[in-house]
Every structure is written in C-alpha cells, then in structure tokens.
Design a protein around this nucleic acid. Structure first.
Lengths: 217, 217, 217, 217
DNA sequence: AGTTAATCGAGACGGTACGTCTAGTCTTATT
DNA sequence: AATAAGACTAGACGTACCGTCTCGATTAACT
C-alpha cells in the first residue's frame, strides 16, 4: 500500500475504519499532510533528484526521523503526495460510445502528462530505474485501475463489432499507452492534444473504422 | 560530440585529423580508455545512480580532475563508454522484404534491450529526466540513425502497397518503438522475443496483411 | 538518596519511614529491579558511554518515560544498580591490629577495583566530570563511610604510638587512596595486589615502622 | 604522535623537516590552527562532552570532513589544542636544592590544575575511560617528560642522603602525584597551593626531614 | 461503587549529532 | 598542457538517541 515503511497498522483502502485505536501516542495527521504538501511545493520549482529528504524536513518544519519513520525514499513521498493532492483525473466516461470514451480518456491522459504532472510521473519512473519497489508501486497505484478501465471499454467495443476477434486487447492497450510514455520519457516530441487524435486515428484506420464514431462506415 | 565538456579542439566527426598538435602535454588516450572501461565494469554490478565519479576515478586509478576536464556528468561517461565498447548492433537488413526486415530489426532491438544493454539504456534515460542535454544526446546518438533506417523501410514497404497512403509513417514508427520503451522503463512486462512477433502481428493484422510475408493475401 | 529525580515522597535520611502510602497506583518494585538488573547486564559488555537510556528501556521492556520519571541520568541508574546488586565489600576488620586491618582493607579495595567493579567506578567518575551532582553523590555513597572507617583505624593506630602526632590523618588517607584512584583512572599501571603491599610498605617505612606488624622494631 | 589519524607523512618529533614536499595540494596550516583555536574557545564555555565535532566545524567555518581527515575524535583535537596553545608550564628548576625544586614543581602543577587547565585535563581523562588510545596518548604527551624530571630530582636527592635506599622512587612519585589527580577527578577537596606544602610536609616528615630544606636537622 | 491520583507501556515527535560519502574546486608537482 | 595526488568546502545520507509528549490501561486509596 505505497512505499510506506511497513507498519502493521493495516487499514486497507476502502475497508471500514474500525477505529482500532492502538496504544501509544497516535500519529499526527497534520504532520503527514504538511510533509506531503511541502514535497509537492518543492517539486514545483525543483527536480525530484535535486530535492532532498533533508530539505523536505527543513521546509516542512518536521524532523528527518519522522519522515524516515513513514517513508522509505523521497520518491515514495512523492508518490503519496501526488496521489493525495493531485489525483490525476483521467476518468473513463461511460456515457459515450467506446471509441469516443477511449479517445477522450487518452486525450485527458496526454493533457495531464503534458504539464507538471508529466514531469513528476517521468521523474518517478526515472527513480524507479534504480528502485524496483518504487516502480512496482507506481504501476500498481497509477496504472492498475486505469488499465482495467481501458480494457473494459475495449471489450465492449469488440462486442459491438469494432475490434476483430484475433486482436489481443492487452497488446492493443500497450500500443496505445506505449507511445505516450515514450514521448514523455524520451522527449522526442511534445505531448500535444493532437497526439491523442493521431494515435486514435491510426488505430481506427487500422481497423478500417470511421474516425469520428469508431463505427464501420 | 557527446556530453563532453566544450573543448575548442573541434575535430568534428569525419573531419580530417590534420594533426594540429597543440602545445603542452598531449591528452593521454590510455587514460580515456581506462576511464570508459572502468565505467562499464562498474555498471555490470552497480546502478548508474549508485556509481560515482569518485568511484570511477578511484577504480580507474585516475584523478577526479581528469574526469571533470573531459566529461560533464557520469551519465555522459556512460554514454561514451556504451557507444564505444558495446555499440548496439540492430542493423536493418536490406536483403529482406520490408516486412521481414522490420520484424528482424525490432526483434534484435528487443533482444538487446532485454539484457544488460537495456538496463543501461533505461538508466541513461532515467538520468536524462533531470538532464535535458543528456537526453538530447541520447536521442541523437542512439535513435537518429535507427529511426531513419526504419523510415526508409516503411517507405519502400508503402511503395510495394503494404501500407495505406493515409497512414503517417512517423507515427507508425512511434507505435512500434513506444511499447518497447514503455516495457523497458515501466517494467510492466518482460522484453521477450515473442513481443516482437506480437507487435508485428498486430500491426500486420491492422493493415489486413498476412502475418508471415507482410503481403496481402 | 541517589541521583533520583526529586520526589516529594520525603523519607529524608534517618527519618522514620512512617509508611505514608500515598494515593494512586503504587510504584512497581519489579520494574525498578528489572531496570537496575538490565543496566548491570549491559555494563558487562558495554561502556557506560556507549549504553543509552533508550537501550536500557528497550532491553528491560520498559518505557523510557518510566526511567526518566525516576532517574535523572544513566550514570545515576548505574550508581543505584551498582550499590544494590554489587555492594562493594571492602570491610574494615576490627579484629586485627590497626596496621594489618588497614593493609587488609586497601588490598580488598585494590582487588575490587582491578576488575569489573573498577571499570564501572572509573566510568562513573568519568561521567561525573560533566555532572557535578553525580560526582557528589558518588563521593557520598561510595566514599563517605569508607573514609570514616579508615580514619577510625588511623586514630587507634596513632593512640598505639604508630603515627606521630604531627601527621595529618586526613592527608594520610588521601596519600593512601590517591595513588589507587590515579592508577584506576590513568591506567598508568595495573592494580595488582602487590600494589597494596608496596603502598603500605612505603608508608610504614616512612614512619620507621616494621613492615609486618606496623610496630616500631 | 597524538590521536591524529595515521598519516604516512612521518616527520617524527625533532627530526629535521627535510622538506620532502609531496605531490598534491599541501595541507592548509591555517585550517589546522583555526580548528585548534576554535576548540579551545569552545572549551572555555562548554564541557568536552557537550561540544561536538559538528559544532567545532560550524564555529571554525571548516568542513567536518576536514576534521575527520586529521583527527579521530574530539578528545584528540583537545589534546592537540591543549598542547599547542596552552602548553602547561610546570618546569623542574635545576637551580634549587632537590627538595625545594620538587615542592616548587608540585605547587606549579597544582596551581595549573586548580583552574581551567585542570578542568580540561580532567575531561580528557574522563573521555579516556572509554577510549584507551586517548588515555595512552595523554599519558605519553602529558606525563612522560614530567615523570622523568621528577625521577631525576628524586635520584639526586637520594644521593644527597635525603631518601633512604629502600624507598622505591617510582612508587614515591605515584604517592606524590596520586593525591593530586584524585582531588582533580573526585573533587573531594579543592586544589589549593597549600596542598602542595601539605603533601611535601608529609613526605618530608615521613623521612624525618626538615620541612624547609629537606635536610635532616 | 465511583472518584481520583499516580504508574506504566507504547510510541510519536522535533531535535541534534554521528561518521561517511560525493560533488566540485583548488593547489601543487610531475611529465 | 595534461595529468596525478590530494586538500578542502558544502551538504546530504541514513541512523541513533535525546527528552518530551500523548494516549490508554492499570492499580490502589479515598470517598
């Protein structure tokens, strides 16, 4: 449940709080918040690499030990902070036909990644290259839900006859997401809105579908 | 000319040596080699992040100042070392039909990235997230030539009627490369040989082409 | 009363206990014992300097706050522990002639200080250099009684004609004890049994007394 | 050679400098001095225990690493600083008769130890209780010369017939010094000038000597 | 039986220092 | 010049304790 230091506390997401107050001085929720907020604030002007746990502690008016007690690395703080304060909103609309919902979703993702959020995600992934646990956590917290939603839409699209039976939907998802992450990380080209349309167009045209509707003409 | 420190020396690649011997003790070629070799050796057991210029100097029996004189960061040393000692060989075969040449090329790339080379490339890109110059250099030295070759093959394939006119070849290239880099950097799935086939299959099937030959049935 | 935190409990030295049981949960005697025992156990393998209140609490399975409630420093815990569990036995024998009783006593002291007890005493004195209260307490609890006993013996020896009238007995005590503490703390020479004999011999000879009996020949 | 970190530099005390300038940036003598001076300054208002290497570095405007490169502990810095800036002057006068020279010397020592120098010496010895190397170094640098000088005087005094042949001079030295260090470290009584006279008186009287001259009446 | 006062454990917290490490820069000597 | 050796500042690293604090649970004596 995040790159948090292992704490037996439990409290899995969604589960009823149960309020099993444990003995000992309780954790100060305010402290947790100020750490995450400070981290985000620092990230507005600095690189993940350039900020330090020392700096976060100093800026947040918090002891280093407190940070180390709860997080294992600065990247996992960022992960938490990012999830909490800036939860990327790239919903999958269920009121649109599959093709449109998909384009809408991808466009939102690209839009989000084209700015500040993209820089942060890129840096988390970068840190993940030398921190396997972080990378896994990133996948689980950022991608798991999203991928499932995309998968669902693709399924329903297929049922409407839009996608041939032999196409591997998982692979298709990778083909859609891959180029976006590649641009994000390699900086080979900017992440503009048009890129969403281009990507979709390509896929649509590949299936011989109409651009706008995703339906066979 | 790499992430080398700016040196007025010049000597652009390919220009005749001219042997403009300058005053003073000449640069020791041996030193340059031992630095690059040591760097690669260290990369076999350590992360790019975990190695330090201090460590390279120590291990190579070389002064830190000497390294700083010629390179601007450890990542640029790695770039040089990687290019020199391990030049990735993912040639584009011209004796095969376009579809096959493409699959062959992609398979070679995936194969290369599935091992040690992949880890290094991933780490260079990671470093590149906080070092724009490095990232640009990586693109220029690693991708420029490759992309051009792919482009060429795609063009000839189109001329043979394999790719519809409305498909943007540049975009198609991104769709082919993107998922590979995404897997490399996100670690969402392993880079196995089959992935090359799957990718190609998808693209082929998208154009309604035959799997094996890339020709319309 | 030891380096105990000031507690209104009272019980001034000598005053009748009166058993003024106060309201509230009474102090847990078990806890007190386990803290002292643990401290001694730790001192067997570690330096006073190297052990920490945190460590004592951890090892004793006791809350840090509990320790802080009753003692003001780790050295005062050691003082208590040392007094309680290892009360140094360097009695003054009253069945021997003064000279012999004295040598016996000094020999016992040296013997005691030559081992584990010596290391602890030395470390308490060391701590005392930056904790005046501790040093005073050490003097009161360790030396007060002993010095008085020595004084008594010296008096009776003088009455038997062994010590000239002009000799300051207090000073003589210092001359006997001083070299022992100096060796203990400076480590200039080992604290062997012979040292007791040498010391006594010197003093005896100074007064022109016979070595064995302390009587004038 | 002090608690200095082992450095192959050599330059044993007294040996001609030889000026074997070695390669590399030479040590900055200014830095060394400012560290020692700062340390002494801090010791005027703080305990050895309470000062920290961190604090010395901060106050001296010097990097911690520089301190750690040359000294192994704060106590060894103090030892150096004390030797350098405050070399205790307790000379042995050779123009006086042995008895007087001895009293003079002891009085000077007591005088010196009764103030600031005494506090520092006490604290070095205290630190030495958990740092054997430091204690040894203290003995060598502070006591070696002094003891030899005292020994010499005692020898000449004996030759003049003042000290009986059977008295162990080494032991006599301990009897003279011991009570001083005991008072210094136990704080049982103040180190006043009179103590020198009292000590001498006792010793003189022990040998049946005249107080003033150290000669038999 | 309920109140009150204290003890005690668990553990969070802001601090401070530890000793190590690396980045870069600088100084000197050597080639 | 270029290189080597190494001193130096600056500052982060992650750990360990410090002494204080909050909390819940416990334990008696006193209502």
């Amino acid at each position: 449940m995040s790159g948090l230091k292992k704490r037996s506390r439990g409290a899995t997401v969604g589960v009823a709080p149960a309020e099993t107050r444990r003995i000992g001085r309780p954790r100060n929720e305010e402290t947790r918040k100020v750490i995450l907020a400070t981290t985000l604030k620092l990230l507005e002007s600095e690189t993940l690499q350039s900020i330090s746990i020392e700096g976060i502690a100093r800026e947040a008016g918090v002891s280093k030990a407190t940070i180390y007690r709860w997080w294992s690395s600065k990247a996992s703080i960022v992960l938490d902070a990012f999830m909490e304060h800036h939860l990327v909103r790239t919903p999958m609309r269920h009121d649109l036909p599959p093709a449109e919902a998909l384009v809408d979703h991808i466009a939102a993702l690209i839009d989000s990644y084209s700015g500040w959020a993209g820089r942060i995600v890129a840096q988390i992934i970068a840190e993940g290259q030398s921190d396997a646990a972080l990378l896994r956590e990133f996948r689980e917290r950022f991608q798991y839900g999203r991928r499932a939603a995309v998968r669902e839409v693709l399924e329903s699209w297929r049922q409407q006859g839009g996608i041939p039976a032999h196409v591997d939907l998982e692979l298709l998802t990778e083909v859609l997401y891959g180029p976006i992450y590649a641009r994000l990380l390699l900086g080979s080209a900017a992440l503009h809105r048009d890129f969403a349309d281009q990507l979709a167009s390509l896929v649509f045209s590949m299936f011989g579908l109409d651009n706008a509707s995703g339906r066979r003409p």
